[in-house]
Design a protein around this nucleic acid. Sequence first.
RNA 1: GCCCGGGUGGCGAAAUCGGCAGACGCAAAGGACUUAAAAUCCUUUUUCCGGCAACGGGAGUGUGGGUUCAAGUCCCACCCCGGGCACCA
Length: 812
Amino acid sequence: MPEKQYDFNQIEMKWHERWKDGVLFQAEENSAKPKYYVLEMLPYPSGTLHIGHIRNYTIGDALARYKRMRGFNVLHPMGWDAFGLPAENAAIANKRDPYEWTSYNIENMKRQHRRMGFSYDWSREVTTCDPEYYRWNQWFFLKMLERGLAYRKQALVNWCAECGTVLANEQVVDGCCWRHESIPVEQRALEQWFLRITSYADELLSAIKELEAGWPERVLVMQRNWIGRSEGAEIDFHLEGSGKPIRVFTTRVDTIYGATCVILAPEHPLVAELASSDLKPQVKHMIDARAAKGPGDVEKAGLFTGKYAVNPYSGEKIPIWIGNFVLMGYGTGAIMAVPAHDERDFEFCSQYHIAIRPVIRPVDGALADAATIKDAFTDDGIVESSGLYSGLASAEARRVMTAKAVAEGFGKGAVTFRIKDWGISRQRYWGTPIPVVHCAKCGIVPVPEKDLPVVLPLGIAITGKGRSPLENVPEFVNVKCPKCGGDARRETDTMDTFIDSAWYFYRYCDAHNSSAPFDSKKIAYWFPIDQYIGGVEHAILHLIYSRFWTKMMRDLGLITNSEPVERMFTQGMVIKDGAKMSKSKGNVVSADQMIERFGADTGRLFELFAAPPEKEMDWTDAGANGAYKFLSRVYRLVTRNVGAVGGAGEGDRKVQRKLNQTIKKITEDFESRWHFNTSIAALMEFLNLLEEHEKQVSGAVMADVLEKLALLLGPFAPYLAEELWEEQGRQGPLFHQTWPAYDPDLAREEEAEIVIQVNGKVRGRIFVAFGTPREALEKHAIGDAKIAALLDGKQVVKVIVVPDKLVNIVVK
RNA sequence: GCCCGGGUGGCGAAAUCGGCAGACGCAAAGGACUUAAAAUCCUUUUUCCGGCAACGGGAGUGUGGGUUCAAGUCCCACCCCGGGCACCA
């Protein structure tokens, strides 16, 4: 009789049908079982599932299946994020209701996920492009507005001409839009809405310490750099004549006696007052030149104002310059230049022949000579030539000098952050409308909570560029003021969709709540997320926003956790032809092709086998065939041995030993490093051995082996595992079975293989019982005929014995 | 420039605590089965030298040093690749 062949199509479709409406993971709060919340980052509803996504999902899915089999109550939800939709695609948006279009996309995507056999809890699906979700975004916005965490101001903001909208600082990559990597971002002065993320800057930074155990270091480093805290002082220099203060920020007050000029950013408000009318065009040119050059290296340039400032400590009069390297957006937009102790100031002052005056000497060295100085000395040291502060150590001088500034009212200690407030206004159609109206009489008036959600009007024309398309929709824009009842205009900016992703995982826990964003009790049960999985590209975007949002919600009294994610795993990107695979690049390899050819099980098995998950991976489908071959062999082996009489049992011990070793290996891989590639290699080794000894295994042992084999396969090839489980006549689903335990005694090899080295080179090997004492091993090794021959005529200097492992004989 | 990763066969990789380098797989070559092909199975496959062969010997984890009985693994210096930050005062 011919063997049954592995027909993945038939098997996968069968289980696909059975699982279609069933929820495999139904997770309940207050279960007696330990909870486990695993989440893959940001599923996108548009387009097709591509290999990069598959990688993301399979890691989380395999982990969730494993945890469930270990008795954990697993919340492994599927949700949808609004961004990534063809939102700005006029042709589509003009014709469709965005909400309907979203559900259409989601249904498509869901079908594909089901086809892949992913085990999400479908009952918890969350759609962020949905009036119900908008309601809660708007609700949060109003809460923040009340508390001054949301505000509107005129500011220089990033503008992407291609998107036709403003972007947050975090969304600018190398001076370009994160979605259009070759389009430089312009600076525009606009009235915009901001969230005061800076009021959490200190906590966002200090709490990083608590994340160190579970987050990748590189993500934390990126966040630290991004937040960029620096401690120093703000000091007023005084304009000669009027005495008007010019406030500078410095981290090195101790060097202030070495300050030889004050430099203003070209955009600094004082420039208008100080610069002569001949100078003003040059200043404008300086600003334009810098903008045109982009963020790369712009050569330093300066303009002398002809005015002077007075150093509040020394009373010295120093020139005021305008410098293109001074940033208006950081500190106070003005600096004191200390060329002897700052590399940038050194470069600038050398270029313009401004005096260089050393005032700090190394602890064990001498003060540099102003005439011959070649480099700035930027370390702390001993303060010199600085009046009554001379002789103090830098740190002490900073303390004393700051205290003096405070006492005399010309300065203070100050902390400056690099992170700025989160600009959330977007001039897009597709996003949560910002729930305020502008009334000529009452100013900015929040939409009352009872009138939420403010929804998007349908059937509008997407104009594309410049202004929100909502401005052209009179029935949306023209409203009555909620306060005075007079005519008013509705805000037409919509929210950044990163707001949606900042808290979507909270909504998962209570997806259908219509009276609150979620029930706090449910959050208390599930949060923080035990394991989050996603790409590193969100390190300073999504991951920082959601940390901020969590702290904000905590301060509103909604939740008790201060951090959303306990452990974060950043999987390596999938590279295709040298470029990161992504929708915007369009270099996507669709999973459909692989599913069609080899099936979903093969696809995910191959994907996990190709490389450890944290590693970047070059996409190639060469080798998928190997995974398919492996599954076919498993299928044939199981089906031909189910219910077979079995052999005499002389192979039992060998097979059982390897089985227990395999269970041990895979269990350890799941518990610690998630190197699924080695888990799968172990399964392959086991299959190789089992096939070799198939005929010598007794029926009883074979039955046990086949059961365990199906269970071990479960997280990697769920359809096939389920089929094999049923094939063996066992009660399903396999998914709810217990993960197999291993017996350490059965896993142990009978004999230890001892490597014998002579001068560190392997010269032979012997088999001995485990636990053979050192002396016996040494004797055994030296007595070995081959070794004895090598030792002949040599003098044994030393013998190293590592029990159960090796003997190394050192000779002369 | 600074801060993280990384560099191992033709390829993807393994070696988890300093103890046999290359597990597992791909590709390739040869063979079995077949009218043929596919599928399947078997053999070889880091490299060099010797041997008909079993086998024996040398070299080998980016480069150069070092520690050690023993180094892919630890230390020092350097080269290359990837990523992040970069006038942040």
